[in-house]
Each structure stands twice: as C-alpha cells, then as structure tokens.
C-alpha cells in the first residue's frame, strides 16, 4: 500500500537573521530580510522524501500559505524531492493575522482534496512558535495525531511513532490516515542543491486561494503590540562571601 503524503511548509524569517521589532510595534521587520523554509518543516519534508525512498509513500504534495514569495519556499521543497506543490495565496492584512486555525482548515481541506493518507508538518514555526497547526489539522480531519515525532516506522496498516515528551520518549501506534508533526531529532534534512532547484522549476505548482477551498481567513485576533523582550541587566562583582550575603540580603533573596 503506497501512501500519499501532504507536507506543510512555511516561509519564515531565516533562523540566522537578527529579528527587529518595527518602531510602531505592529510586528517585526520583514522587508528586505532573508527568508527561508521553517527548519522544522524542512525536517517534515525530509521525512516525507525518506518515506518515499523507502517506497512507503508514492507521492508527496507540499503546501504553503502566504504571499507570492512562498513559492520560493515551495521550490526548495520540490528541490528536496517533493513531487508537486500547492500555493495557497494569502496576502495583506489576512496574511499578517493568519493563525494556525486558518492554516489547519486549509490543510484539512487540501488533505481531503488530494486524497492524502499522511499529513506531515513541522512541530512549530520559528517565527510565531505556535505549535498548533498539526493538532488542529488532526482535529478538523478527525484523524489520529502523532506530534513531536522523533522516529517514524511503518507497521502493518499503521505507523509506530516515537515521540519526544518531557523527560523522555513515548512510542505510540497510529492508524492511517494520520497527522504527524516533526521534532528536531527526526532526521537530518538534505541541502537543496543548485541543479535540483533548477529541475524543481519544471515540477508542477498549483495556485489556489482560501476562497477556492471555502476557508474563511478573516482575522480572528488583533495584534495589540509587539515588543522586544526586556534586556538583561548587567551584573556586579563581589569581593568575598560576606559581601555576597550582604547583597543578597539587601535584595531580599535570602
């Protein structure tokens, strides 16, 4: 039984970029800033490609929701070995307030449309750190979920997934179809090489809008303010233990 996999990829500000908050506190500076695929989504793509190499998966479809530039992220996914891509175009205020619930609805719709048996996404995006999309997608589809996966194995009709949990690992069995979210240690993503990126330009990329899928992406929340975390105050040196105790007492710590 060969499965069809749907992989969600998000275009985010590159992990190596120093994020700056806009002076008007409405968000972070994204203009002229290097963007790339969310690293956890890279792991998700890699896992799908590895499952395809093991002949467990027959076709991989990548999805990205966002502005036109999201297509570059999809090209990277195609270069890594994805077969075809779907770009769900979301722009302007709707994109700025796009929440995991919207993306989950889109992914659920597409999973049904593409007849996917397996939805793989990164556990969270490094920009909003929501960690909700996989869980919500599973809920909308009413499929089992295996989130924070660090190992995926095919067993019978289902999958055995090792999950990263607080202070250890948990092994669960899930029936298919299922939703999986990738944790950091699942695999080592391959690098999208230049020739593969060139070849990826020939792979099919379908454009859709949330409207086509019947998903309402109108903002549900309003961003009140985005601020930098407080800067750490400088420490002070003490001469000896007595002084240390005195200082701590003064601060009311002991």
């Amino acid at each position: 039984m060969a499965l069809r996999a749907l992989v969600g990829v998000k275009r985010v500000v590159d992990y190596a970029v120093r994020v700056r908050v806009k002076p008007d506190k409405t968000g972070v500076v994204t203009d002229g800033v290097k963007h790339s695929m969310n690293p956890f989504d890279e792991i998700a793509v890699e896992e799908a490609v590895r499952l395809k190499e093991k002949k467990i998966v027959s076709e991989i479809v990548a999805v990205s929701c966002g502005p036109t530039q999201s297509q570059e992220t999809l090209r990277t996914a195609l270069a890594m070995g994805v077969d075809k891509a779907v770009h769900v175009e979301v722009t302007g205020p709707e994109y700025n307030n796009l929440q995991p619930i919207h993306v989950a609805k889109i992914l659920a719709k597409l999973a049904t449309e593409q007849k996917a048996d397996l939805v793989i996404v990164g556990k969270q995006a490094i920009d909003d750190d929501c960690n909700q999309t996989a869980q919500m997608t599973a809920a909308f589809l009413d499929w089992p979920q295996a989130v924070f996966a660090s190992k995926i194995e095919k067993e019978g009709d289902g999958l055995t997934v090792t999950r990263e949990i607080d202070g250890g690992l948990e092994t669960i069995k899930v029936k298919l179809p299922a939703v999986i979210s990738a944790d950091l240690r699942l695999n080592e993503p391959r690098y999208a090489t230049l020739p593969n990126i060139m070849k990826a330009k020939k792979k099919p990329l379908e454009k859709k809008t949330p409207k086509d899928l019947g998903v309402d992406v109108s903002p549900r929340i309003e961003v009140v303010s985005v601020e930098d975390p407080p800067t750490r105050e400088a420490g002070a040196k003490v001469e000896d233990v007595d002084q240390l105790i005195e200082k701590l007492k003064k601060l009311g710590r002991i």
Partner: peptide
C-alpha cells in the same frame, strides 16, 4: 560546507528550543 550549515542550524535550534534539556 553542507554539513556546516546543517550543524549550525541544528545547534541554534537546539539552543533556542531545548534550553533546559542539557541542564536536566
């Protein structure tokens, strides 16, 4: 160079998201 990029990314993410683990 590919390995360098991968390691750099992995280490950065590990430092950002799995901070307490090393201490634990």
């Amino acid at each position: 160079v590919e390995a360098l990029y991968y390691l750099k990314k992995y280490r950065t993410l590990k430092k950002r998201y799995y901070k307490d683990e090393d201490e634990e």
